[in-house]
């Protein structure tokens, strides 16, 4: 009796292990498949954002910096500044507000000054600053 009982338990264990292995063998590839592969696109280092003559004082424009938006601002003093336009709060795209001369995020009313530092609202960190160089009339923006 006891040997039959042991044999049954042994067979149950083998069968159970077989089922669990099958589930694992299916679940593992599916799990790996669900994780999107890392994009092969290298992080952009430098782009021509605009023609300097197009950007009037006290205005801003959003440009394409690789796969992310960038914000180019000409301050009322005529100085050019560039930032990564992704708000540090929840990834919205920020814009320049000429009436307050601040950078503003419309999603949750976060504001930054023209150095990219948080003035008010929920953003936890300052905006990432980008380096601006002029090459003739071209405004070249690059990552530091």
């Amino acid at each position: 009796m006891s040997s039959a009982f042991n044999r049954r338990r042994f067979l149950d264990a083998i069968l159970g292990a077989g089922f669990i292995s099958t589930i694992a063998a299916v679940a593992y590839p599916v799990w790996r498949y669900l994780i999107p592969p890392v994009s092969g696109e290298p992080a952009t280092q430098s782009v021509v954002a605009a023609q300097a003559s197009q950007v009037k004082p006290n205005s801003g424009l959003v440009f394409k910096f690789g796969s992310k938006p960038g914000l180019l601002v000409r301050t009322p003093d005529g100085e050019l500044q560039a930032f990564n336009a992704v708000c540090t709060h929840l990834d919205c795209t920020v814009q320049y507000k000429p009436d307050t001369s601040q950078i503003w995020c419309a999603c949750h009313n976060g504001t930054y000054d023209l150095q990219g530092n948080v003035v008010s609202g929920p953003p936890p960190r300052p905006l990432e600053r980008l380096v601006v160089n002029q090459r003739g009339d071209e405004v070249v923006v690059s990552r530091t």
Binding site: P29, V30, R32, I35, P36, P37
Partner: peptide
Amino acid sequence: QVEFGWLI
């Protein structure tokens, strides 16, 4: 590119 994509 996708892991196990060929298998699926």
